[in-house]
Design a protein around this nucleic acid. Structure first.
Lengths: 334, 334
DNA sequence: TGGTCAATATGAAACGTTTCATTGCCATAA
DNA sequence: TTATGGCAATGAAACGTTTCATATTGACCA
């Protein structure tokens, strides 16, 4: 089929070893022969087989990316950056969705391991891998969500939650709602804890001016944001929250739609803070105030940890940043 | 490192061939031995190496997916379905972004070919592949955009354009704008031609009631939709279009934002029709009327063509469908 | 007993690389 | 002339599979 190193060797009347050494550019080989071999390679359109190479080296140039759902803009963005960086370093990215199903995750991991990947980037479904631990030799980076016994690269979710809370408190909000992600995920818990912690601090600081916090739990998607949003917003004006923070932008966008449907103006009647800063956040109306995750940086660190200088030590917590846009304002005077 | 078939063979005191036959379930092997081997496999946690297997069979179980940008919701959706189907059939998906750059595309294709993929799904940057044609042995499916000499699976974009036009005409619009994608892509051209063709039909049907069509070209993203939208919408009320169709949903959503900023109500003052029906289309406000592409069906046909019964013959054009939501209405009376 | 057949296990070759110990060559030194 | 050494190319082994031709076994029949 495709020409192999043997064909090249025969055609250039050298041994396969020599061809191989021509390809590994740094080897010492007679200039005349090198040229002859290179010419044959070009003429035959020879392309070294990754398969043979990987088998011999017992290590492929594939990086496995295991995420819940590529349809989620956050992971799509992450995948894009990872792929770009990996590609530049001569690696390819294998995509695997778990759909947040531990069984599917296990299957995907197994199937990936058969490929002897150079490394794996995983956003695990839960805190522990169902199929047991990953093999020793494998370099892996856990992103977004932690996995016991593995190094994590992620934004500091706790701090992110605090940022959102601080912003709302500073604007003067005192009746606040929070739409959480599933509390089975560590991400949700961290964000919520950060948020709640900051709110409680404020409450105890000024006992005369108690802050009232209502937390409801949903999923990380648009629909959930809309549904939970409705629940939080029904009730008379004096009772309902003047601000709601969400655990991600998709929920926030769903919430935006719910408030529109209910005739509640954002930010005049209701302030909304999201989390992630997906591209869409700056496109909805009003543009969404949100806590930004440095996705590109996460991708860079992950790739560096995988391909670069040894595994990373301990969890890396990146700094989140509050991006102030048009969906937050002081509470309505009443 | 990881146990190999040899380790299993030694441990179970059989030959490697026998182990292999135990794994290929359909082979005839003594039940007692089979059990012994299986037990050893389980005990050792043996996992056959994809590498060795692929090398021997000269065919891997990798499906290459080459697309412009995984961040585009349409492609993300497609990738998800492809991955799900491929995974169910025991294949893995290798992700490669071209960022609409022919050079990057060439590099990605080359790098993919080294892996001896079982097949490749490609949404090519342009009508022809820079690095020459794909090798003979390789099964490939072209999606979304055609590639000369390759079979295409895509929605009937021409018909989709007609659907959008018909809808607006039936509502009574006579001053219509169209935001096209880059006219270097076949997709854009087809959609525009379909749209324009239908409009011209209407114009000639009823000469007394001429339809006026303004077409501007942009890119397939939010920003472009917003910018081009602004251009179309400036000018006094009597002159500006009462309806605008776009070449994809992202443009439509950008346009939505532009009209909001300009104080133009949708659909009362302006009707908008998108194309694709990405998940977000039903979440923006107002919910977007759009031409739906059967993404899941595209994925299914592509996978079937790749893994199933031989290559597909000729281009497959799937039927688009108009999804009527809240962004279109009769033109304002004036 | 010898022969035939079916059933089943074996061993080796092959897939396309890389690497490493050898070999061959030539120049310089003794 | 014979050693010595350095440089470059060679050939074979190895990576982990699958497959195919061959070997082994036992049973059955004449």
């Amino acid at each position: 089929m495709s020409p192999t190193v043997k064909d090249v060797a025969r055609e250039a009347r050298v041994s396969v070893g020599t061809v191989s050494r021509v390809l590994a550019r740094n080897e010492t080989v007679n200039p005349g022969i090198r040229q002859r071999v290179e010419e044959v390679i070009a003429r035959l359109g020879y392309r070294p087989s990754s398969l043979g190479r990987s088998l011999r080296l017992n290590k492929s140039d594939i990086i496995g990316l295991i995420i819940p759902d590529i349809t989620n803009p956050f992971f799509a963005e992450l995948a894009k950056h990872l792929e770009t960086l990996a590609s530049a370093a001569g690696y390819s990215v294998l995509l695997a969705n778990t759909h947040d199903d531990p069984k599917a995750e296990c299957k995907q991991v197994q199937s990936l391991l058969c490929r002897v990947p150079a490394g794996i980037v995983i956003a695990p479904v839960s805190g522990s891998l169902v199929g047991g631990i990953l093999p020793d030799g494998l370099v892996s980076v856990t992103i977004d969500r932690p996995l016991t016994g593995h190094s994590l690269v992620a934004v500091d979710n706790f701090e992110g939650g605090r940022l959102a809370a601080s912003h709302l408190l500073e604007l003067g909000h005192r009746r606040i709602g929070y739409i959480s992600g599933p509390t089975t995920t560590d991400v949700s818990i961290q964000r919520l804890n950060g948020f709640r912690g900051r709110v409680e601090e404020a409450s105890s600081d000024r006992a005369q001016d108690l802050v009232q916090l209502t937390v409801l739990e949903g999923n990380f998607d648009y629909k959930s944001g809309e549904a939970i949003g409705r629940k939080l917003l029904q009730g008379n004006v004096g009772r309902r929250p003047t601000a709601i923070a969400t655990a991600n932008d998709q929920q926030a966008i769903g919430l935006l739609r719910a408030s529109r449907d209910l005739g509640i103006r954002v930010p005049e009647d209701l302030s909304i803070v999201g989390f992630d800063d997906i591209p869409l956040a700056s496109l909805v109306l009003p543009r969404l105030t949100t806590v930004r995750q440095p996705i590109e940086e996460i991708a860079e660190i992950a790739i560096r940890a995988l391909l670069g200088s040894g595994p990373i030590v301990g969890p890396i917590a990146l700094r989140p940043a509050l991006v102030e846009r048009d969906s937050t304002a002081p509470p309505p005077a009443c």
